[in-house]
Amino acid sequence: SEFSSRSGYGEYVQQTLQPGMRVRMLDDYEEISAGDEGEFRQSNNGIPPVQVFWQSTGRTYWVHWHMLEILGP
């Protein structure tokens, strides 16, 4: 990996993601499973900070930056 740390990767995702971009989950996290795909909606200063609309659940759920792989527009 070109990223030395999880936080470095998270910063990359945070700087790159734009609303509407497709993402894939890298880790299991509460209701969301690794491999689930969705659409980035928004972020804020909460914890976790990233709101994604997940195809698997049909609704939005908040996750962490480093848990997401960017699939593209």
Rank of each mutant, 00 (worst) to 15 (best):
residue 63 V to Y: 04
residue 14 Q to K: 15
residue 44 N to H: 14
residue 63 V to A: 03
residue 32 I to V: 12
residue 5 S to P: 07
residue 51 Q to S: 07
residue 57 T to Q: 08
residue 31 E to K: 11
residue 70 I to E: 11
residue 17 L to R: 01
residue 57 T to A: 11
residue 25 M to V: 01
residue 3 F to L: 12
residue 6 R to C: 15
residue 23 V to F: 01
residue 52 V to M: 07
residue 14 Q to R: 14
residue 28 D to K: 03
residue 27 D to N: 12
residue 59 R to C: 12
residue 15 Q to N: 10
residue 25 M to I: 00
residue 29 Y to V: 10
residue 43 S to I: 06
residue 44 N to P: 01
residue 29 Y to R: 04
residue 19 P to Y: 07
residue 29 Y to W: 12
residue 49 P to T: 00
residue 20 G to C: 02
residue 16 T to D: 06
residue 54 W to H: 06
residue 69 E to Q: 00
residue 23 V to K: 12
residue 6 R to D: 15
residue 51 Q to C: 11
residue 40 F to C: 02
residue 55 Q to M: 14
residue 11 E to R: 14
residue 67 M to E: 00
residue 71 L to Q: 00
residue 7 S to R: 12
residue 68 L to F: 06
residue 63 V to S: 00
residue 34 A to W: 02
residue 35 G to E: 04
residue 27 D to W: 11
residue 53 F to T: 08
residue 9 Y to W: 05
residue 32 I to A: 14
residue 4 S to M: 05
residue 5 S to Q: 02
residue 55 Q to A: 11
residue 60 T to A: 11
residue 3 F to C: 13
residue 13 V to T: 03
residue 40 F to G: 00
residue 44 N to M: 01
residue 53 F to Y: 07
residue 15 Q to Y: 11
residue 62 W to V: 04
residue 49 P to W: 06
residue 25 M to S: 09
residue 65 W to K: 04
residue 57 T to E: 08
residue 4 S to F: 07
residue 13 V to H: 08
residue 38 G to M: 02
residue 6 R to Q: 14
residue 56 S to H: 07
residue 47 I to L: 13
residue 19 P to G: 03
residue 61 Y to C: 15
residue 71 L to A: 04
residue 71 L to P: 03
residue 4 S to P: 10
residue 62 W to R: 15
residue 43 S to Y: 09
residue 46 G to I: 05
residue 14 Q to D: 08
residue 2 E to H: 10
residue 66 H to V: 06
residue 26 L to T: 10
residue 10 G to N: 05
residue 28 D to A: 04
residue 31 E to H: 02
residue 59 R to E: 05
residue 11 E to F: 10
residue 12 Y to H: 14
residue 61 Y to I: 07
residue 47 I to D: 15
residue 22 R to A: 04
residue 44 N to K: 15
residue 73 P to H: 10
residue 26 L to Q: 02
residue 21 M to N: 09
residue 14 Q to E: 09
residue 11 E to N: 13
residue 5 S to M: 12
residue 26 L to G: 02
residue 18 Q to V: 10
residue 34 A to F: 02
residue 25 M to P: 01
residue 55 Q to K: 11
residue 62 W to S: 15
residue 28 D to M: 06
residue 67 M to F: 03
residue 47 I to E: 15
residue 10 G to I: 12
residue 37 E to A: 01
residue 12 Y to A: 10
residue 31 E to N: 07
residue 45 N to R: 10
residue 47 I to V: 14
